[in-house]
Design a protein around this nucleic acid. Structure first.
Lengths: 237, 237
DNA sequence: CGACCGCCTTGACCTTGGTCAAGACCCTCC
DNA sequence: GGAGGGTCTTGACCAAGGTCAAGGCGGTCG
């Protein structure tokens, strides 16, 4: 048994999510009434593509991947959910017949809060301001997807990996920043729509070129500007 | 000079858009107050990727493509807008600092109505019900993008083209449906993220296999079920 | 009518990244 | 310490699709 959380602690944790950050205590209270906690073990499935979508989720601990399966069973990870993020909330607006467009599975042991669709819509109706936050967060997600489509079609594997690395440089570091990969390389590969072998080969090539150093899950960037140049668009774009 | 439209005609046209379909006359009236008409010639640019997003659009006539440019200037068409559709409305919620995530250009001569961001947000604040329609339409678009990502990564060029064909079969036709391509093949190729040459080759291959007949922009499907089988997923998915 | 232009098609070749297979490395557990 | 398992790496090979180049097939315009 773990010590029960105070209401304040719960509210603080919920506010980590973009979606809830702007809510008043009262609104969070309404939200929390319909909230349930669940735990998943690594590898456990949360929901499957095509299932009726009756709940959405807030990830407290662990890692969850959202993915689609191809005809041959190969999986493409659409998004990796990290603690403090909500997911599947967009589906709530497809109405009662809405279905999850992806599969969700815990990558590592995870703890989540779940929210019931009906309660949530009801709350929105009473506090329409929240809808604006939702609209903003959805349009952000929309743009992310557009960016993904661009990089999947306009750019090659090296470009995608280098972009991924550059995006994960800890801020504030000037020289030789070090990136600690928090997810297995195979997961990153799927996220970038390449095979683990190819990921490995590209890292090797960058290493040989003196741009980076690789030590297991720790990657040190030797030459940030050279990496930037690799993915630079000639035009402003 | 063209004959001026009656208010009723305008409302009827606006309601063709998902986004506006559910609005009352009064709400449409508010919307129409901030509306302006513009015309574009084929090839003319409406807005560019990165520009401040102050307006969104309703396409009345013609064809508009939304696309991104790669480092080498190659373009990937994200979406082809057809008459009766709205676009760029999601960006309105990124706040005053929002910027268009794509380029927009008229494929053929086009007429549009434009809506100012500030007016629109103001109206939403007074009629929060509309926000729910918006949320639904955005989550639909979100799902479409997820589907695109899947087909770009999990499936090959033939799969994408066949899926495109199947989606464009006029409804109600049983035997040998005929598809009239309304956009140049090169545009379709970009939409499917393949080269025009590849598109041409795949069509040739399908033709040799007796699955379709091609006569310029007119494609006759000889064997619908064979096409369906081509893209069938072994599992339910 | 014939030159020209845009769009599509076809062919030859090449690059990228996927597949298959073998082994390296590392960690845990007995 | 050693066996076993998961993950990552490396190599050899292959297939899909991109690139380059040439030509066909209407259209339009002078």
């Amino acid at each position: 048994m773990m010590t029960p959380m105070t209401t304040d602690e719960r509210f603080g944790e919920l506010r980590r999510a973009h979606l809830f950050a702007e809510l008043t205590d009262e609104q969070l209270g309404m939200l929390a009434r319909g909230m349930h906690e669940i735990a998943l073990e690594a590898g456990q499935t949360l929901f499957r593509h095509g299932e009726p979508a009756e709940r959405f989720f807030f990830l407290r601990e662990g890692l969850v991947k959202l993915f689609r399966l191809g005809p041959d069973g190969s999986e493409k990870i659409i998004e990796i959910i990290k603690p403090g993020e909500t997911f599947a909330e967009a589906v709530m607006f497809m109405g009662l017949k809405g279905r999850y467009p992806v599969n969700a599975e815990a990558v590592s042991d995870a703890r989540l809060w779940t929210f019931n669709q009906k309660n949530f819509l009801e709350m929105l109706r009473q506090a329409p301001d929240i809808a604006f936050g939702l609209l903003a967060s959805m349009s952000r997600r929309l743009h992310m997807l557009v960016n993904q489509i661009e990089s999947l079609t306009l750019q090659n594997a090296t470009y995608r990996l280098v972009t991924y690395l550059l995006e994960h440089i800890p801020s504030g570091v000037k020289t030789s920043p070090e990136i600690q990969l928090t997810t297995p390389k195979s997961v990153i590969a799927s996220r970038l729509a390449i095979q683990p072998e190819t990921l490995s080969r590209i890292l090797a090539r960058l290493r040989q070129g003196g741009l980076i150093e690789v030590d297991g899950p720790r990657i040190t960037i030797r030459d940030v500007s050279a990496l930037r140049r690799l993915v630079q668009t000639p035009e402003g774009g």
